[in-house]
């Protein structure tokens, strides 16, 4: 009798590795799977015992409809889109300029170092001063407060990433363009920026994700329920509706989908850029 392929001696090692790795991978994925499975449970099944991992009394999509109507998720979603896009736009535009500056001109290393140090900052320390300043300026309880405060983490990160990307593009190409009569600015616009597109795209996406996931500032600087972003709206759910966990988990899935989609599209660039040592989070 022929043994199945994965049990052949030459493959046993690989099979053992795969089984161990799969078990570990599934353990790490379990909470995520449980989130989706809870969101599909009916209200009555949530509070029956023994609790089960997967729905046993049928799959319900009602929770997904309810989060939008009952939970005001349409509004939170739009607020998150506005705040995340604006802070990303501001940060990345400024960072493109700075990235070119650091990558193409001899500037003191100390300046670049100060960008790095500003990334290490405990952001919670900024909450009391921002709170006071925003109230003085009349920005408390506005999206502008969030857009401004988000620049504090999105900008250092973007400068850091983009400097690295621009440095990885050979300067010879720009010089060749200049020999052919292009101005320095023209060379940046026609040569460097197009070549750096994947890097710029990855930076945009990651800034967007950081802003999309941000909780602390949004939780503190906004009190008007109709201005809340998704993470805060999600967290407030617990208080508002007691423990309608299926609704909460449906909201969690809705919050996660844009992040996962963006991540999957740009996975290659993101993983390379981030593991080069820029951020963890």
């Amino acid at each position: 009798m022929k043994r199945p392929k994965f049990l052949r001696p030459s493959n046993i090692r690989g099979t053992i590795f795969l089984v161990i790795a799969l078990v570990i991978g599934i353990i790490f994925a379990l909470p995520f799977i449980y989130m989706i499975s809870t969101s599909l449970k009916g209200q009555s099944e949530l509070f029956t015992r023994p609790a089960t991992f997967f729905p046993t009394k049928g799959y319900y999509f009602q929770a997904y409809l309810d989060v939008w109507s009952k939970g005001k998720f349409d509004q939170y979603f739009m607020n998150s889109v506005v705040v995340s896009s604006a802070s990303t736009l501001v940060s990345v535009v400024i960072a493109i300029l700075a990235g070119l500056g650091f990558a193409r001109y001899k500037l003191p290393n100390k300046l670049l170092l100060s960008i790095l140090v500003s990334q290490l900052f405990p952001l919670v320390l900024l909450v009391p001063p921002f709170f006071v300043v925003f109230r003085q300026m009349g920005l408390y309880d506005t999206h502008a407060a969030l857009i401004i405060s988000y620049v504090s983490f999105a900008l250092p990160y973007s400068v850091w990433m983009l400097t690295g990307y621009f440095r990885s593009i050979p300067i010879d190409l720009e010089e060749a363009a200049q020999v052919d009569g292009a101005t320095r600015l023209g060379a940046y616009l026609r040569i460097t920026l197009p070549l750096a597109t994947p890097g710029i795209a990855a930076t945009i996406v990651y800034c967007f994700i950081l802003a999309w996931n941000e909780f602390l500032f949004a939780f503190t600087f906004i009190s008007n329920p109709s201005l809340r972003t998704l993470p805060v709206g999600l967290q407030m759910f617990i208080g508002q509706y007691g423990v309608e966990w299926n609704l909460l988990m449906a909201g969690a899935v809705v919050t996660t989908i844009p992040v996962v989609v963006l991540f999957v599209i740009l996975q290659r660039y993101l993983v390379a850029g981030l593991t080069a040592g820029a951020v963890k989070g």
């Binding site: 909470p31 989130m35 996931n213 909780f215 993470p231 999600l234 967290q235 969690a252 996660t256 992040v259």
Partner: peptide, 9 residues
């Protein structure tokens, strides 16, 4: 996974 989502789960 966004941290709010992870924590609530």
């Amino acid at each position: 996974t966004p941290s709010v989502v992870a924590m609530l789960t």
